[in-house]
Simulated scan of single mutants.
Amino acid sequence: MHEMALCEGLVQSLMEQASSQDFSKVHRIWLEIGALATVEPEAMRFNFPIVARGTLAEEAVLEILPVDGHGWCMQCSTPVAVRAFGAGCPLCGGFQLQISDGQQMRIKQLEVS
């Protein structure tokens, strides 16, 4: 369950940002999670309150923004939607896809005071 470790990293990042940006409380976090990031959003939602307990993000609301996977099919030279690793091109069925988006997990926005 690596989502627990990801939540710990998220809280650590929030504490570092609080120190450098001079805020003391996080109210809301918008977190982008790509469809190809191998991160389970529900596990993040479950683990975040546990990890954030006793920190500046203890009462923060975690908003998860899904990001679709995108890639380039080298066989048909077309940008395509990619739903999962190992999936073929939805247009030609080819498996030579170069992933261009959807692998990230990043803080998109914070509401702080």
Rank of each mutant, 00 (worst) to 15 (best):
H70G: 03
C7M: 08
E3C: 12
V80R: 00
F85R: 11
T38F: 13
V82G: 01
P66M: 04
G102Y: 03
S13F: 07
S13A: 13
R83A: 13
E8F: 02
K25P: 01
Q75M: 12
P79R: 12
R53E: 15
I50G: 08
S20M: 10
G34K: 00
V26L: 05
Q12W: 04
G9K: 10
A81C: 09
L62D: 09
E8A: 08
L91I: 15
H70W: 14
I33T: 11
G71Q: 02
L36A: 01
M1I: 13
E58N: 12
E3I: 12
G102P: 01
G71P: 01
S19M: 11
W30S: 12
E3P: 06
M4T: 09
V11I: 11
M15C: 12
R45L: 15
Q12I: 01
G54D: 08
G69C: 11
M74K: 15
E42Y: 09
E58R: 11
L56S: 04
A84W: 07
L110Y: 02
L62W: 05
F46D: 02
A5N: 14
E42Q: 14
I64A: 01
I107Y: 08
Q103M: 11
L6H: 00
Q109C: 02
L6P: 00
E59P: 00
S13E: 13
Q12D: 15
E32V: 13
Q104G: 04
C92A: 06
L56Q: 08
I64G: 03
Q75D: 15
E59I: 01
S100N: 12
A35I: 09
M1D: 14
L97M: 07
P49Q: 09
A57V: 03
R53K: 15
P66S: 05
G88R: 07
L10P: 00
E16I: 04
S13K: 14
P66F: 04
I33M: 06
R83F: 12
Q109H: 13
T55I: 08
E111Y: 02
S100C: 06
R53W: 05
V82E: 03
F85C: 03
V39S: 03
A60Q: 05
T38N: 14
Q96L: 10
V39K: 06
E8G: 01
I99C: 02
V51M: 06
V11C: 04
L10E: 01
P41L: 06
V112R: 10
I50H: 11
T38D: 14
Q96V: 09
C92Y: 06
E111R: 08
G86E: 06
I64W: 02
S13T: 14
